[in-house]
Write a protein that binds this DNA or RNA. Structure first.
Lengths: 281, 281
DNA sequence: ATATTAATGTAATTAAATTACAAAAACGAA
DNA sequence: TTCGTTTTTGTAATTTAATTACATTAATAT
């Protein structure tokens, strides 16, 4: 998947001159993209076929294929590389970095999504008697957002950012109720407690959280968002966004699972809100 | 920057056969990456030089350059032009479409951002006596989220999703207070009213909303997110996310503008929350 | 020290992209 | 319409790039 990493990993498998090529590649991957075998050969002080052999060894079909993979890699990873915010960044730079790191976090999440878990989540939600959304801190607004979305449908959807209210709701849950818990790390103690209460009451507990985390233990389904740690510096940003988009996807899947009637319902809600807006010009 | 979009935009400038090439490209951009001029020419039923002419017209150096740009674009995920959800899509497809359209909405927002307006917003916030975040419906959770973020700093930050509470807060605002209003369309009547109240009280009103909208009239600064309409089908999704990322960027800029002390403050908050979490293993 | 294997380069070949130019189509003005 | 002009398109030639075949050199083990 990650071609630059692959080159680094296989450095030891390479012959002397192939190694020279690798060095040249790692020196400035960006540059390789716009270069021909001939020029790269000259730069690395090897013959042209060696370039080709290098590409094959790395696992590519040939030099053009290698360039392509590199280009894709860099396009994706460009944001990762430079997403740390420095004290002397100006506003434009910071804005750009935030957007870029969010973009790459989302792209990463999309790539590593567990579709089976999502499918399972949707089928549980579809048959739910009642859906509760729980979370603390930054995850509270994710939970709030989720509740907002599900409010458009007919299944009762609740949310509170109050610990006690959440606890009571978990205590009063029954089989057939679904509890969705949000926590990026899965290590928030209060939330684990709540999840356990729901779990013990045989409600269905769904965790939008890290796999293998303490919270995950009390979940029937875990959907994780795989956002690299370093994207969230002082406060959760990218991870929160990833969770919200995940919920968007789940809501869309949920809506679709309901079939035709729900579309009319949604259209009705939209129409009903019309009067509270100025008409578009 | 966005090559697929460029192709779409310049569709009308193309000649008949160049148009055929464009169609072929838009049909399956992924496929083009691994194809030669000869094959693409055959697929589009044109001659090889036409492929080259097409690339030049679009603004590329040639076919290999076009392929490279396309590859990079696709890697970023910002390509999915038409992500309308169909009734017969399965869960994986829907999930993918939601992520893709969110990614492209974000990429689009990033590209069209008004950095001057953001800078102005940050400088107002920096000197604010009190910051209020207002919004209804889906924008309420964005406002909530914003309040959450700013709660980590020392400037008082308020939020409520209650109309009356918001109205009272606007009525009680003073010069030096900042009111941030969220509305994708800028046409929510209740919010316009609130913005006007604040405006009349000489509070600073910042609109995260559409330029030229009714809401924009009562804003001292407008930051718009330029998310294409069609990305939000039945409910606001991508636009909401774009607003949140925008807030992330503003928060980051805000934090940076405060200098060293705020970093310590943030670190302190983080440390203070430690006990409410299980330690990472 | 020599046989054997692996690594590398040279030269040839194949493939891909681009250019030059001519034919055809589209367009405008009389 | 009809003729001249411009634009579009394709054919063939050329250039550039990538790959292969094979010979040579270097490295390694017996």
């Amino acid at each position: 998947m990650n071609i630059v990493q692959t080159v680094k990993d296989r450095l030891s498998d390479l012959s002397k001159n192939e190694y020279k090529v690798a060095q040249q590649v790692l020196l400035d991957p960006e540059a390789i993209i716009h270069v021909s075998t001939a020029t790269l050969a000259k730069q690395a002080n090897v013959s042209e076929p060696t370039i080709n052999r290098f590409c094959r060894r790395i696992g590519c079909k040939g030099f053009p294929d290698f360039k392509l993979q590199l280009a894709q890699q860099l396009a994706k990873g460009a944001s990762y590389v430079n997403s740390q915010i420095d004290d002397d960044d100006n506003v434009s730079t910071v804005t750009d970095k935030i957007f870029s790191s969010t973009l790459s976090a989302l792209a990463n999440t999309q790539r590593t999504l567990d579709h089976a878990a999502i499918e399972k989540t949707i089928s549980y939600l579809k048959d739910a008697r009642k859906i509760s959304f729980f979370g603390f801190g930054a995850s509270a607004s994710v939970a709030h957002d989720a509740q907002n979305k599900f409010a458009r449908f007919t299944t009762p959807a609740i949310f509170s950012d109050d610990v006690l209210v959440q606890k009571v709701a978990a205590l009063n849950s029954l089989p057939g109720d679904v509890i969705v818990c949000f926590s990026h790390t899965g290590r928030t103690k209060a939330l684990c407690e709540i999840a356990q209460l729901g779990y013990d009451n045989q409600a269905t507990v769904i965790g939008i959280t890290a796999k293998g985390s303490p919270l995950a233990k009390y979940c029937h389904v875990v959907v994780s968002t795989e956002v690299p740690e370093d994207t969230d510096q002082y406060m959760p940003m990218a991870s929160r966004i990833a969770q919200m988009v995940l919920i968007d996807a789940i809501v869309a899947g949920f809506a679709l699972a309901q079939g035709e009637e729900i579309k009319q319902q949604l259209a009705r809600v939209k129409a009903g809100l019309k009067d509270s807006r100025f008409p578009p010009q």
